[in-house]
Design a protein around this nucleic acid. Structure first.
Lengths: 327, 327
DNA sequence: CGGCCATGAGTTACCGATACCAGAAATACG
DNA sequence: CGTATTTCTGGTATCGGTAACTCATGGCCG
């Protein structure tokens, strides 16, 4: 920057102003600085800038898994909004572990990020402590937490699972199976289970533990869950797959075996993969606002960072049931 | 840090050493510093550290689209390796535009990243110029470029497309259709087209322009390509879908119409989505080393950054043909 | 016409770490 | 036992910007 200043015959301070707040500098000087910047090939050092102003334009994001396409649209939404506002995105992957999440959060705070977005909603005490002390604004994404760290942007996993279960009940299904990921380690699965049971109660259907399964994620896992449930003495007439690609695995397994859906068993899914609508038969599913979650998360975070708001926001985004031929 | 130094009764210099290179400090002092760090809740400022040492542990990654699950495993591979080595990942999304890529690169250089990974292999002149001047090491990923900026880690799109086309020819198919993304804007598609034609020639099959289609990405797009090719006067007996989820869309369309595969037409895919193996019938595809590309990219980049190598590496990773019932 | 304020540019002091050099203490060695 | 080395620790300058303040200029007002 010193070179630029010398070449433009001004002080470094003026160069700094010409670049960050051009309105404060006369057009003449502005032009000279711009020319010098080009001539020197000057690339500002944001590290120094952030250090000096103690303001950074970096947002840290922690997702359980980068590879999982469910999170991809949320990340895309965040990235879109941040880019429009000239901010950068740092991503870390917790591998579904709270300890790894804590490490990622620490690394982000060391980089002095301007804000954090966390997909998970349960954290280690140390992580919570660090965040509180740092005063960095945070958005949580996974589910509508009753006591958020700061801000939340999500839909209600509980309500969504309940709505779909009730939908099945209204269609006349009486033995509705429920397959989800392991609830002990996953707040989202927990919420969905509770929603499922709430719906059963509301519909006046008995809860049968034999109809509720927890599986690891994956296509094969969905197929296995299907077979296990259908092999039992009193098989379900509908199954609600509330996790990852489980429903897809199950649907494809039915196709392989030639089982009529919903003739033999109805299938409903939680996630709105495009693909579910293209299977034969197309699968009834919930449409979740994944992209919107990303966008809104970035927006509320930026609002806070730029001082346009201070209240701890909680955004409840709407889901939708897409009824298709599988139920 | 000053607080920590005071509390541990040492200079800031010693605190710095105790944290970055503990071996250089006596065990006694090391313990006092550690204790003080805990007591104060000290979080080091990497911004200041990087500025001072002109070394950062941040890697910048530019992908065409974050949402596209094809890139997700590569990102995962990068993230895994970086985390193991205590580095951070910044991601930007170019939306398949060279100008946006240039902007992302500029932003990364302003943050003084230690290295860059670019998925695309064609860049604006300004971007190339900036990178060269900065001296930051770069890995390109999209395809094996003849004249890389610096390092390349990829498989050969040309060879892969050629291998699959030859595979189809050897199976006895004579009119092999080819569907890819728009080649004018995508070096990968271009390489694949060339590979396809090279294979036809090698197999002694005529090239029929009517059998070659360019489509936008997407499930629906694949279905449409299928119908267009099959509706023609001389339909193909096999179609090789060399882009995104095109093959999946086509396969599902066949299922919907009840067309036997490969009875009516054989289908082969380029991308190794899990799902392709679970469709009915399972689809023949190429197995591409996506995760490995990410890992190796991060590894060669770190090697360079840590001075363990200096040569411009070019890593050619192997692909594999997964033969399934669809051909 | 004097005083006041808005505008544009410069000066100086940091931001919070590390590099580099130097000095003190501890250890080694002939 | 004196000197040569190593090991540990501290002082100071500096990385490349920005905040906060100062100062000169010029237009506007009563």
């Amino acid at each position: 920057m010193r070179d630029v200043a010398r070449m433009a015959q001004v002080s470094t301070m003026t160069v700094s102003r010409a670049l960050t707040d051009p309105a404060k500098v006369s057009p003449d000087v502005r032009a000279r600085v711009a020319e010098a910047v080009r001539a020197v090939g000057y690339v500002p050092n944001k590290l120094a800038g952030s250090l000096s102003s103690s303001r950074s334009r970096i947002i840290g994001l922690v997702v359980p898994s980068i590879e999982n396409s469910l999170f991809a649209s949320t990340v895309q939404g965040i990235s879109d909004v941040l880019r429009r506002h000239g901010h950068q995105l740092m991503i870390a992957d917790s591998g579904y572990s709270m300890e790894a999440e804590e490490a990622a959060i620490r690394a982000f705070l060391e980089q002095r990020v301007a804000g954090l977005i966390l997909h998970d909603t349960t954290h280690t005490p140390a992580a919570v402590e660090m965040i509180k002390r740092s005063g960095v604004p945070v958005v949580e994404n996974g589910t509508l937490v009753p006591e958020p760290l700061d801000m939340v942007v999500s839909y209600s996993n509980h309500d969504a699972a309940k709505a779909m279960t009730l939908h099945l009940a209204r269609l006349g299904y009486r033995r509705i199976g429920f397959v989800s990921l392991h609830a002990a380690t996953n707040a989202r699965s927990r919420d969905r289970q509770v929603g499922y049971r709430a719906a059963l109660e509301e519909a006046g259907l008995p809860f049968d533990p034999a109809l509720m399964l927890e599986m690891p994620p994956g296509l094969a896992s969905g197929a296995e869950a299907l077979l296990r449930l259908m092999d039992s003495a009193a098989p379900p007439d509908a199954i609600f797959f509330a996790g990852d690609v489980l429903a897809m695995g199950a649907s494809l397994e039915c196709a392989r075996r030639g089982w009529p859906v919903p003739g033999k068993v109805a299938i409903a899914a939680f996630d709105n993969f495009d693909l579910l609508g293209h299977l034969v038969p197309p699968v009834t599913t919930l449409k979740l606002p994944r992209l919107e979650i990303g966008r809104r998360s970035a927006e509320v975070l930026l609002d806070r960072i730029q001082g346009r708001s201070s209240a701890p926001v909680s955004v409840d985004l709407r889901f939708e049931i897409i009824h298709r031929a599988s139920t």
